[in-house]
Amino acid sequence: MRIILLTVKRDLLLYFRKPGDIFNPLAFSLLVISLFPLGVGPSADILGEISAGIIWVAALLTTLFSIDLMFKEDYEDGTLEQMILGREPLLLVVYGKIIAQWLVGGLVITLLSPLLGMMFYVNTDGILATVLALMLATPTMTLIGSIGAALTLGLNKGGVLIAILILPLYLPVLILGVAMIDTATAGDNYAGHVLWLAAILAISIGFAPLATEQGIRISLSE
């Protein structure tokens, strides 16, 4: 357990010393979202209809852009080799890195989502559901994304390949999440969506880091 905490602490420290890695993808996504009301026009009907999808695409893009860097620097400066060779299990280190990545990526976009919701005239029920859905889905996105990041480590054009590899895996989360927000906005009960998202999250927590760990070993063996 100690090594998980230490890894989280180390990665957060590195992110804070180089905030661009986190801030740039976030700023890009927020800018893209804010273009929609300008481009589509300020009609509450249209914006309300497309809001859920846009917020989710923003969350996906933020995750995708930042996940690329998750192991890259550790790979290039050789600290990843130390993580593999050290006595502490690589799996726990991977968990730590995923938690840190989520704290600066997924959690931030979740906390910002009410603001985005208001921009798109989403009602209070819808905003609550958005926060809840993102809270459950962004960790899943980071977990699944870490597999792609590990597998594309040694490749130069990793970024695009990650998108092709893992975007299809995001589809269930995307469909459930958007449906959940729409249901909530309409005032209906969305407990089923919550349970499904939570179930996917539970499975991802259990299995994704295992795949990530193996991915790192394979990439390092090149």
Binding site: R10, D77, G78
Partner: peptide, 29 residues
């Protein structure tokens, strides 16, 4: 569990010498 020091030195550019070594020891249990 060998101690391996390769061409990539295993040091984070953004961390101090002390932080780097402390991390090396921690990852080594």
């Amino acid at each position: 569990y060998p101690l391996y020091i390769g061409h990539r030195r295993g040091l984070k550019a953004l961390m101090s010498a002390r932080e780097n070594l402390f991390w090396s020891a921690a990852i080594n249990g």
